[in-house]
Amino acid sequence: MKKTHITFTLNGQPVEVLVEPRELLVHVLREQLGQTGSHIGCETSHCGACTVDLDGRSLKACTLLAVQADGSDLLTVEGLAPGGELHAVQEGFVQEHGLQCGYCTPGMLIRAYRLLQENPNPTEAEIREGMSGNLCRCTGYQNIIKAVQYAAKKLAEGEVEAA
C-alpha cells in the first residue's frame, strides 16, 4: 500500500514521517518517533492511556489515523517538561501520590494539562467529569483528583503545600 509523507509539530519540533494510511497515530509516535509516553491500553478508545493533545484538544491517539494528524500541532506527555523541570500537573502527581503502577499516568497528565487550560479553577465534580475519559486500573482515582487540584493551585498561585 502506498505510503504518505506527513508533517506535524511534535512538542514544538517539526517532524516528517512516512506512514501507511492504516497506521494509527499512537503507533507512529511510539514506533517511528520513539516517543513512548503515549501508552497503548485498550486500543478501543475507552481507557485514555494514549491521550494526546492535538491542536489544543485532548484526543485518543489509538482512534486516529496518523495521516489525519498531517499539519497539526501535537503535544504529548514528553512535551510537558521541555527544560527538565516538571510541569505543575506532573509535580501534583508526585506530591499527591497520583500513581500506583503508572501505566495510565501519561494519559492522565496530558489530559489534566488540557483540562486545566480549559478550566483553570475546576470543582472536584468538574475534575471527575473532565478526567472521565481516563481509566486507572489500580483504581487510584482519589489521589489523581488531588493531584489535579494541586496542579490547579500551583498554576494559579505558583506555590502550594501538599495535602
Binding site: 478508545s45 484538544r57 485532548s58 475519559g133
Partner: peptide
C-alpha cells in the same frame, strides 16, 4: 455521550 476525549472527535 462518551467522554471528553471522544466528544472532541
Amino acid at each position: 455521550i462518551a467522554d471528553p476525549q471522544v466528544r472532541n472527535r
